[in-house]
Write a protein that binds this DNA or RNA. Structure first.
Length: 265
DNA sequence: AAAGGCGTCAACCGCTCCCTT
DNA sequence: CAAGGGAGCGGTTGACGCCTT
């Protein structure tokens, strides 16, 4: 529809950021917060595209970034999340405090892919390499197939239907009680059939000591949240759903998850 | 020491989603 | 309801550094 460019490209810098630019951006955001990215560069005195500023802040300058090497626990969590979610890097990043989608994406492409290949696992399908050729459907579809096929999910490309849960009519097209397979149903497939991925191995850093232990609840038709402070009652996605009900009708479920990292703690 | 190959990661691009009008 | 605009996302690129020859 011929939308206008996000910035005046002729008068913007590109490429690596200088220390001065970083300083300006940090100072501005500290003073004014993360506001309108489009107008931020001008207000901050930066000759940068708003998108570029946002990316620089989110991926590099944010004070809560962890930096440093990924731990073995993070590796495994990324693998499991990718198996379930596909290339939804922002969703995966939402479960890894202090990590950015870009960082995880790069790490996946440079490290984990190779790691999986060395294990004889296809990084796309998460199946053994010889079996992957026989059946190209990713396991996050195969294993969830009974449910999602019934729910009529058909997400873009080969990505898992879990991501589209809640988008539009997908959300409410099925009574969750009867169609949700019992946990043991997938027990033989090598995945935690409660489909909850614990962050328990993750030790909060000194910067986030108050962070409650949390785990993704992937109870098949809902992506919710387990939290210790839920009284040990397990999945609270039902409650969360009530809270979100007004807006969730139009929201993707993964829009719901991501803020839990920020707002839910 | 120089050249080429390779790996890593910051940054860009184009697209989609969602909110506002 | 439709159009426009802002924000976010995922794929891709390019620069840089390290390693090998």
């Amino acid at each position: 529809m011929g939308r206008s460019p996000c910035c005046e490209k002729a008068h913007t810098n590109k490429g690596a950021w200088t220390k001065e630019e970083d300083g300006r951006l940090v100072a501005y955001i500290k003073a004014h917060g993360e506001g309108c990215w489009r107008s931020l560069p001008k207000a901050a005195g930066l000759l940068r595209c708003g998108k570029s500023c946002r990316l620089r802040w989110i991926n590099y300058l944010r004070p809560d970034l962890k930096r440093g090497n990924f731990t073995e626990e993070e590796d495994e969590l990324i693998i499991k999340l990718h198996q379930l979610l596909g290339n939804k890097w922002s969703l995966i990043a939402g479960r890894l405090p202090g990590r950015t989608d870009n960082e995880i994406k790069n790490y996946w492409n440079t490290h984990i892919k190779r790691k999986l290949l060395a294990r004889g696992v296809d990084p796309h399908t998460h199946r053994p390499l010889n079996a992957a050729a026989a059946n190209a459907m990713p396991p996050h579809q195969q294993q969830l197939q009974p449910h999602f096929a019934a729910a009529g999910h058909n997400h873009q490309q080969d990505h898992p239907p879990a991501c589209s849960s809640g988008s539009g009519s997908d959300e409410d097209d099925e009574p969750s009680g009867s169609a949700t397979p019992p946990p043991s149903r997938h027990a033989g497939l090598g995945i935690d059939l409660n489909l909850s991925i614990s962050l328990a191995p993750y030790q909060p850093t000194s910067q986030e000591p108050d962070r409650p232990a949390a785990a993704v609840c992937l109870c098949l038709n809902r992506l919710g949240l387990f939290q210790d402070d839920a009284g040990g009652k397990g999945c609270i996605c039902g409650a969360a759903e009530q809270q979100q009900q007004a807006s969730a009708q139009r929201q993707h479920m993964f829009r719901f998850i991501a803020p839990l990292e920020q707002g839910g703690q």
